[in-house]
Simulated scan of single mutants.
Amino acid sequence: MRPGVGTIKARPFNWADLVTLYRYRHQIACLDSILALTRGQPLGFWVVLRHLRLEENAFTTVLHPSDGKPALIGQASLRNGGSLGQMTFVLPAVASQTALVPFLIEELVRQVGQQGGLGLLAAVDEESPLFEGLRHSGFAVYAWQRIWRLMGAPLMGNGQGDWLPTTGLDEFAIRSLYQALTPPLVQRAEPLAERALAGMVFQQEGEILAYMEAHFGPRGILLFPLFHPDVQRPAEVLKAYLRGLHFSLGRPVYVAVRSYQAWLEDALTDLQGELYRQQALMVRYLTVTTRSAVWAPVKAGRDNRQPALIGPLPREMCVAPIQRVTETATLSETHYN
């Protein structure tokens, strides 16, 4: 309960809420960039219904304020066995409902934690009214992301370089590339160890210098590039990859450029790409890493001490090593003579 908000009741989603879902279907804020760009933005009514199924491992919560305002519906999910959950959507995403967002987040965090999740991720547009609501709910920005949209016309030409499907032999090189180029905050929020490497790799002089992950949907294709700065002519390398998307079927192609890969935007400009949106990638952890001192037993420390040298070594302890060195030298000279 909070001043000016009144009594709030939280409960699981049920089929009676379909009326509210349909009424505010055009006010859905999708907090999953992959879902939004491959399934449509705003999310269609039937797309939302699909993610209400139990087998999707999703948690949908409804908040009912007592001041006559419409109910607030939100959803989070745990997918692919990951340790961090993903916020899926919130509706209605209007400024008047911002005060209810922290209560909704707390309920979703509780449900994700009960299923073994260690945190919650969200991708929110900068101008969205949910941005401040998420910050007040304990979310912190771990990276910025700019989405570029590419059309088909500037992609004519062969491009430069060959992209190859990832194999098991490439896994170590891809993980090394990820660790070298990705900040620690991002590595903690998006651990590569929890994802199957099913993208494409680009080699330059026998070394893997780029990796591309693609997500396909009926409304678009979303690409996540990871390029080393040593890649020569990155615009041509990108064009070579895009030329391989033979089954795009006229769908728009989006490229997500993280803030630590901002130099790639020059290549996207050369391909006549247009900036589509800018997002804040946010995370809230359910656990806190702490360090605690571990004391060793006193007896073990006393028994493992090395004897102190208070004087010179006895003569009998020095003769044997000197003799062994002399004999070794003599044998070596005899061998070469």
Rank of each mutant, 00 (worst) to 15 (best):
R2I: 13
R2E: 14
G4E: 02
V5F: 00
G6N: 11
K9S: 14
F13D: 01
A16G: 14
D17R: 05
L18N: 08
R23F: 08
R23W: 08
Y24R: 07
R25Y: 06
C30P: 05
S33A: 15
S33Q: 14
L35G: 06
A36Y: 01
T38N: 05
G40Y: 05
F45V: 04
F45C: 03
W46K: 11
V47Q: 10
R50S: 14
H51Y: 15
R53Q: 14
R53E: 12
A58F: 07
S66W: 07
D67N: 12
A71V: 10
L72W: 07
L78K: 07
R79E: 13
S83P: 04
Q86E: 10
T88Q: 15
F89E: 00
L91T: 08
T98C: 11
L100Q: 05
P102R: 00
L104A: 06
V109M: 11
V112C: 04
V112H: 01
V112S: 03
G117T: 03
L118G: 11
L120G: 02
D125Y: 05
D125F: 05
E127I: 09
E127S: 12
L130H: 00
E132F: 12
V141A: 11
Y142C: 08
Y142L: 07
Y142R: 06
Q145P: 06
Q145L: 11
R146C: 04
L150F: 05
M151H: 15
M151S: 15
M151T: 15
G152P: 13
A153N: 08
M156S: 15
N158F: 15
N158C: 14
Q160Y: 08
P165V: 01
P165H: 01
F172M: 10
I174F: 02
S176T: 13
Q179Y: 15
A180D: 12
A180L: 11
L181D: 00
L181P: 08
L185M: 10
L185I: 02
V186L: 00
R188F: 08
E190Y: 09
L192S: 00
E194Q: 13
E194V: 07
G199K: 02
E207G: 02
L209E: 05
Y211F: 15
E213H: 13
A214I: 03
H215W: 09
I221M: 10
L222P: 07
P229C: 05
V231L: 08
R233H: 13
R233C: 06
E236R: 04
E236G: 08
E236Q: 11
V237P: 04
L238F: 11
A240D: 09
L245R: 07
P252Y: 03
V253M: 05
V255Y: 04
V255F: 00
V255K: 01
S259A: 14
Y260A: 04
E265A: 01
L271I: 07
Q272S: 14
Q272G: 10
Y276I: 03
Y276S: 09
Q278S: 11
Q279D: 08
T289I: 14
S292R: 15
S292P: 06
A293C: 05
A293I: 11
V294L: 09
G301A: 15
G301S: 14
N304Q: 13
Q306P: 06
P307T: 09
L309R: 09
P312I: 03
P312D: 09
L313K: 02
R315F: 13
C318S: 11
V319L: 04
P321G: 01
I322H: 07
V325R: 14
A329M: 12
E333L: 12
H335I: 15
N337F: 09
